[in-house]
Amino acid sequence: MTTPAEPYALPTEASVEVSAEEHQFNELIAADSRIEPRDWMPEGYRKTLVRQISQHAHSEIIGMQPEANWITRAPSLKRKAILMAKVQDEAGHGLYLYSAAQTLGTTRDEMTDALIAGKARYSSIFNYPSPTWADMGAIGWLVDGAAICNQVPLCRASYGPYGRAMVRICKEESFHQRQGFEILLELMNGTPAQREMAQDAVNRWYWPALQMFGPPDNDSPNSAQSMAWNIKRFSNDELRQRFVGMCVPQAEVLGVTLPDPDLRYNEETKEYDMGEIDWTEFHEVLAGRGPANARRLQRRREAHEDGAWVREAAAAYARKQAVRSKAVA
């Protein structure tokens, strides 16, 4: 037994200078209320949010690419229409999030510039290729499933505009996950080759999906502060565990095998024990050395540069119209 630490080791309230505004901020956080754009906030809180929300927005925008890859080759007109609706949603999610980040004083143009210059991060998951139609199923089921797990608690994030954007996004994501599940289920009810294709896609997406929750808690230095600020509500490992718990029975319905030989139910903890995640791979992909990083970024840069004349022409037209309507008035 160790003796408890002496209380004088802790700073007393009087010893820490807290401004009136900071005091109000702390009170709002303590009451689990919301911070709104024009409220005073610590610089670290603002920076954390800009980083997190813009990364999230970039992920949605880059995330359009692996699926857009299959729009022209979808197996039926219905599947094509669904896939287009889904990719359009991802674009919408990116825009909701850029809007939310913009209320913190960073413009969308600045965020886009950072992304195409390769200075901003986005979720490592979108740096994997999508070579088969079954990938559309596995992405919807596993990638969107993991995203939902991460995002539902973010609806209660302490920053008002972020939470509100997440509410909209979560409503739309559940369609994404269900349509992915349905694609896999149809393949699993199909020919042996189709079943094999579905299983192969699950094998490739399962581990990267688990990595979407971020590094393990003991290697996630910013998590504690984000949780103290009520931005994050659950730790990376908690959310990952919850996701695996949901995947197992769903995999049974599908008839696919999750590619983790160490995955088994632990009667004591009432949770699934899982195998070791390859964090070297995670860090490699995050550092830009994943299978599709260069391609994804180049595609985004080209789209932005190719669209420059449209943005400029529309702005010039708007200026001209404004001058004309003034002249008439």
Partner: peptide, 30 residues
């Protein structure tokens, strides 16, 4: 919040009337 002269396209705030009988409500910007 969020407007900037530096951007090529200006920012607009969006209000949506969800159904008849309800006021327009702020939903975000674009």
């Amino acid at each position: 919040p969020g407007t900037s002269e530096k951007e090529i396209w200006p920012l607009w705030e969006v209000f949506v009337r969800a159904s008849r009988g309800i006021s327009h409500t702020h939903v975000g910007s674009l």
